[in-house]
């Protein structure tokens, strides 16, 4: 099964291994609202595949269809060789799922949580004890086996969730935003653990995230999802290379002037300029050093002051902007603005 989808689609082919997950022309509609629109991709065995997108992009809807939690409106999803619509129980036996929320029971001990899920997955009595010990070792929670879950830290609880999803030795592992709400140290620990699990257990993983860094460091391939469609697919390197311009120059003038954008766009090698307000611009260029020089010369010629200037290689942020026309963090800022109304006397 070849991976297919569109934009970077030429770069989106799965490695030449059997497909653990194959999604073909899948749709999800809620009344008139189309949450997922004609998405195609496949995930090879042993691959870590990331679905990257802002909140509300359709990542969780996609993962829920693949894990049999919601019915597919149209199209087909095959997971572990089983059609999610026709053989949901076979799919459920083949997969482990870590939902976005931490759903382990805080009143139960670590071992009790794992034991109950082992029973729900039908792990035979003889294998149960060994499986629990193995997964606790794998997530480094063996010494917390008898602890009540509510006494664990956030990072440890997330590791318990991961252990719970592995207690029946699945071949395919779905993780819905596995590091949301964790501090940076715990987040890195989870990444390391997932990489280790991939190797030691030969797991295929599908991860949804809205963290660029997570997708970049963890995933073999990434699909960018926006407004229910898959807008780009490829390895992190392929995605970065697909963006015209190898460097990003971030320049901050001490005042906002609409004329700056046009002047920088006309510079040699510059492929796009994005104004972020307050005199701050992100300039994507084929030659970072040359564009930097030109910006400095331009500012000196016009007597303008540069507050800051930096050059960096293309990141997934730039890739995301390129394919969606906006920044992932814009969505998060909007969410925060919605959650926290402006304080009296403070200008938004």
């Amino acid at each position: 099964m070849s991976a297919v989808s569109h934009p970077v689609m030429d770069h989106g082919h799965a490695p030449a291994r059997p497909a653990a997950i194959a999604v073909e022309h899948i749709w999800k509609r809620y009344g008139d609202f189309e949450a997922v629109k004609d998405v195609n991709f496949s995930v090879a065995e042993g691959e870590i595949f990331g679905l990257l997108g802002p909140n509300g992009a359709g990542k969780s809807t996609l993962i829920r269809m693949m894990t049999t939690l919601i019915p597919v409106t149209a199209g087909k999803a095959v997971v572990g060789g089983h059609d999610v619509s026709r053989d949901p129980d076979d799919v459920r036996c083949a997969i482990g799922v870590i939902p976005q929320a931490m759903t382990s029971d805080p009143d139960l001990t670590v071992e009790e949580n794992l034991s109950i899920y082992a029973k729900l997955y039908g792990v035979p009595r003889g294998a149960r004890e060994k499986n629990i010990s193995d997964v606790l070792d794998a997530v480094d929670l063996a010494k917390w086996r008898g602890a009540q879950t509510k006494t664990l830290s956030g990072g440890m609880r997330r590791r318990l969730e991961i252990a719970r999803g592995l207690v029946h030795n699945p071949r395919i592992f779905f993780l819905d935003e596995p590091t949301t709400g964790l501090d940076p140290v715990s987040r890195i620990a989870v990444w390391e653990m997932l990489n280790k699990l991939k190797v030691t257990r030969n797991l295929t993983m599908l991860i949804t995230t809205h963290y660029m860094e997570e997708a970049d460091k963890l995933c073999d391939r990434i699909a960018i999802v926006d407004h229910g469609t898959l807008v780009a697919l490829g390895t992190p390197v392929e995605l970065k290379n697909s963006v015209a311009g190898a460097n990003v120059v971030e320049v901050h003038f001490d005042r906002q002037d609409d004329a700056w954008q046009g002047r920088m766009e006309s510079m040699d090698g510059v492929t796009s300029v994005v104004s972020e307000g307050g005199g701050f611009y992100r300039v994507i260029t084929r030659s970072g050093s040359k564009t930097t020089m030109e910006i400095v010369e331009l500012a000196a010629r016009l007597g303008e002051t540069l507050t800051s200037l930096s050059v960096q290689n293309t990141t997934l942020d730039d890739v995301f902007i390129h394919y969606t026309g906006r920044q992932l963090r814009d969505e998060q800022v909007k969410a925060v603005t919605f959650a926290l109304p402006p304080r009296p006397g403070v200008r938004p």
């Binding site: 894990t67 939690l69 459920r92 929320a101 931490m102 039908g122």
Partner: peptide, 13 residues
């Protein structure tokens, strides 16, 4: 609401 049932529903129960 806490997602406990979601945990049940992904199992073959």
């Amino acid at each position: 609401a806490r997602g406990v049932h979601e945990g049940y529903l992904v199992t073959p129960i």
